[in-house]
Design a protein around this nucleic acid. Sequence first.
DNA 1: ATGAAAGCGCTAACAG
DNA 2: CTGTTAGCGCTTTCAT
Lengths: 342, 342
Amino acid sequence: MTGKRYVSSTDVARLAGVSQSAVSRTYTEGASVSPTTREKVLAAARALGYRPNFLPQALMSSRSHLVAVAVGGITNPFYASVLEQFATALQEAGQQVVLIQIDNDYALDAVLDRIAGYRVDALVSSLAVLSTETAHALSDLRIPVVCFNGRIRAAWVSCVSMDNLQAGAMAADHLREAGGRRFAFLGGPPDSPASQDRQAGFEHQLQRLRLPKPLVLPGDFSYEAGHAAATRLVAADPRPDAVACVNDLSALGLLDGLRRAGLRSPDDVRLLGYDNIGIAAWSAYELTSFDQNVPEMIRRTLRLILDDNAADEARQGVLETVPARLVIRCTTGRAGAPCLGI
Amino acid sequence: MTGKRYVSSTDVARLAGVSQSAVSRTYTEGASVSPTTREKVLAAARALGYRPNFLPQALMSSRSHLVAVAVGGITNPFYASVLEQFATALQEAGQQVVLIQIDNDYALDAVLDRIAGYRVDALVSSLAVLSTETAHALSDLRIPVVCFNGRIRAAWVSCVSMDNLQAGAMAADHLREAGGRRFAFLGGPPDSPASQDRQAGFEHQLQRLRLPKPLVLPGDFSYEAGHAAATRLVAADPRPDAVACVNDLSALGLLDGLRRAGLRSPDDVRLLGYDNIGIAAWSAYELTSFDQNVPEMIRRTLRLILDDNAADEARQGVLETVPARLVIRCTTGRAGAPCLGI
DNA sequence: ATGAAAGCGCTAACAG
DNA sequence: CTGTTAGCGCTTTCAT
């Protein structure tokens, strides 16, 4: 695993009998090289197995074409899907993805050196939580930072997020229309802005509709938390018959927990989640969910981090919001409707 | 988004009133710097917000500390989990993960330039499929390549994989013990070595047990394929009562499909999958599955790509195999046993 | 169109 | 212990 094994442009130049600059030009879009020289260079390069080294380019231009993507918990199918779409989009834009796996926000400080060290062009964070300190530390790097579903704003730090307040309100509307009378909200981590906003929008809309306050169940985005919440829900008196869950994963857990307890959805409990993960459409679940329009969010994120026209916005830090789209499935369908489920 | 905004060691040196080398040494483990100089340097660095640039280091040493991880389809929870564990392990080993999203093996050729261009220290591929041509192209890069669950071997190209043949045989044994009489195998993509080996091991063991050949249903690792296979399974005459599925995702699809058709597991059909993804343990499924011991596979992979003692093996290319572990859950439990399911 | 030369930010070898 | 010097492989002037 020792170094010194790659062919350099100098090696190619020597074999081709041209100058090193000629080799460089051959690989530079729109540089002036005669067809003859070009051919000689390419032939030599092929013979030697030459591959241009991007590191010096990055060194000189301070543009590494590396974008750090920080994720926490890609075992959550929603984030896996987001990451996949990001990777595809960034690759198409000629960038490379440096994956930063982070367990909590505070660990981000620890990786700051690395993302700075590789001189990444930008950072995208799927971590909802981002402390003010971290945001400031990132600010100091003076590279565009975009948080997915975050709410924090600082110089160089922007957020692209679903309109969680609106989506919270939509949940209230929809659950009422589906026949709900007694409401509950299965929450996420208390410090998650997405969770806070979905809950706030939900509660606010219930209030506007002059409906009683929801029962709030604690959770943490996980299937297990949802499963555990079922016990509490079943024990509640009066028992809620309509639950908005902060995300699909915990909604699925709740649904399974309710089934264990002998309850059915939508007949006994109307249920919906957020993220519209693939499993929500599985025939065992058919869960109603809010779709985040991830492609649009990614488009906006890429604009902020790669588009020179957006440089000013990126430097200031902006908040962008994308409307949610309700995907109605069986768990909020008519009771006894032809939603087979399981 | 223009360059030239990072502080360099020269800037720090100037402010600290020392030479640039002194700054470099301050950041080099075990270099000789006096405490006084060190302090001056650190103070200046702090004042300026200096972060060492790794690019020149990589340039000089030909060790970028970048490891490319190629994945195709991280929406499959198994691969998401593998990626997460890889990222964590590599970060702990001081490496950065460059994520390469690939849709099919042939696209790998297209990214060859990029992984070579960034001078990655190694490549890990979770793509089961890897054509001989691609393997050779990778070989030419002379960097250690490890394929997860692959079978191809070439100079510099190794594989770390579950013992799929053995695990196939174990499936036959277990399904028979669980009371199966008529067997089926739900397969994956025909060109997947993992799929081939699991099926081969399964069929071979059935033969050894003097049991009839299994019905083979086509699939592609997806939930949808499993769901679709249910129809064919139900229509089969005689209908199999024990199915080994090439992975959990398609097993879950099959299970849901069977339920739709009014069949129950394990009573009507015994079922098992491979990968032991989280969802397999969900109370709606309780699917028996083979655990791949991913931590051990990752350990071996890291040894091959990072450990100097393994350099010879890596250069030659080796095949390493890790035994599978059967995790028994309800879908192969006793009929009518206290596995509540849903 | 091409070669020579400078320099990106760093490490390493070499004096002192 | 510390400063000077020479590169790493490339892009970019600047002459020619």
